[in-house]
Design a protein around this nucleic acid. Sequence first.
DNA 1: TACTTCGGCGCC
DNA 2: AAAGGGCGCCGAAGTA
Length: 464
Amino acid sequence: MTENMKPITDRGYKLLHNGAIALSQVEANGMRIDIDYLNRAIKNTEGRINKLSTRMQNDEVFKTWKKLFGTKTNMSSREQLGKVLFSELGYDCPSHTKTGKPQVNETALNSIDLRFVKDYVQIERLKKTRSTYLQGILRETTVNEFIHPVFNLHFVKTFRGSSDSPNFQNIPIRNPVIAKLVRRAFIARLNYRIVETDYSGVEIAGATCYHKDPKMIAYIENEKKDLHRDMAGQIYKLSKKQITKEIRYCGKNMFVFPQFYGDYYLHCAKNLWDAISQMKLKTTDGIKLFDHLKTKGIVKLGRCDPEQKPKEGTFEYHLKEIEDDFWNKRFKRYGKWRKDWWYEYLKKGYFDTLTGFRIEGVYKRNEVINYPVQGTAFHWLLWSLIRIQKILNKYKMKSLIVGQIHDSIVADVHKKEFKNYIEITQQVMTVDIRKHWKWINVPLKIETEASPVHGSWYEKEKVV
DNA sequence: TACTTCGGCGCC
DNA sequence: AAAGGGCGCCGAAGTA
């Protein structure tokens, strides 16, 4: 256990006890791996890396690099690349690390328009894929072609779980090309299909059990209401009809979630503003967002200097107003909870989760607000996993739980048990759990995705 | 050679 | 008043 966490109720203790037993079975089950595919994929990736590498070595920038570092030249050294770009070639260094060195991450590199730099970013992405994933999974695959990832319950200070050897919880999914390259290696057993069941919006629901804000409850209960869309509309001054999927995405991932995690308007304003050009945002009627905002009187982001008050009429000023409105009007009760929860912690020196644990020690405000929510959300998943596995065992079903990713359960489901498995997860994760924890004050929803029989994890598709 | 720290990046 | 929460794994560079 981490030093500052302990169960303070019988239920809390039992959850971890039964959770450890359940996860040990998950580990023993393991997931089937296509070794032949992995070997092919490694070779292919190798080829792509070599091709890019050759092109880079013929580039003018590389000559400068070699002049600077001679025999010490290492094309995968970010530090060296930083010196080449920011000291030698005179490009602007947008930011520095906490130890004062130039930051050479993807954001910084994307600001430089050179083929050499684009090739570098691409090659690093492929190397990450090769080493951490393709080779990393192959290394952990046993002679009978299974991996058995470890699922820990006692390392994470928020009461979440973690996974290692290999880490089952960070397999690529957002970049579709990389996702396919890696996930194709995870395959279903013969006559089985891979089924992944996610709790949707679980942290928002978890938080609602603490703050009990009636407006948030309404958002969750009413299928027609959509917080991310509403915020996107307020941010970019749009009507519901004008909001595209991309614009909603920005509202969700650059305002709503960051705000819940304790971010503030300056950071949000900058991201939301940059997204307009980077994602080429347009309304559903094809109007560029910059043009649209101009008609509403906003033409500038503002200086985004934390030391200075934002000027009226700027986008940052607008975001400051939205943030105020968000916490003091729209979700007034939630905003009050955050203050009360923090001051209560300052008085007592600890805080308790609804699932029966105490977290003691020195924490920052954002940690005190986030830990109970993150932990509670994971405990819902863990409780469900234990219950589902018990049912699978009790009825001697062939289907097996093979992994857990914080708010989702991955199983290898026998083709004849598919419908049954869906019913079990639905019952346990949305109905039974609310009988176990009476303080859950919002409906819980799940989403299921499944691969074809004999398919790979990459091929999963929504089950309706 | 073995170990640690840092920065980076994959995921929720 | 402060100003994004949580992981694990990799390679580079420094140290012993």
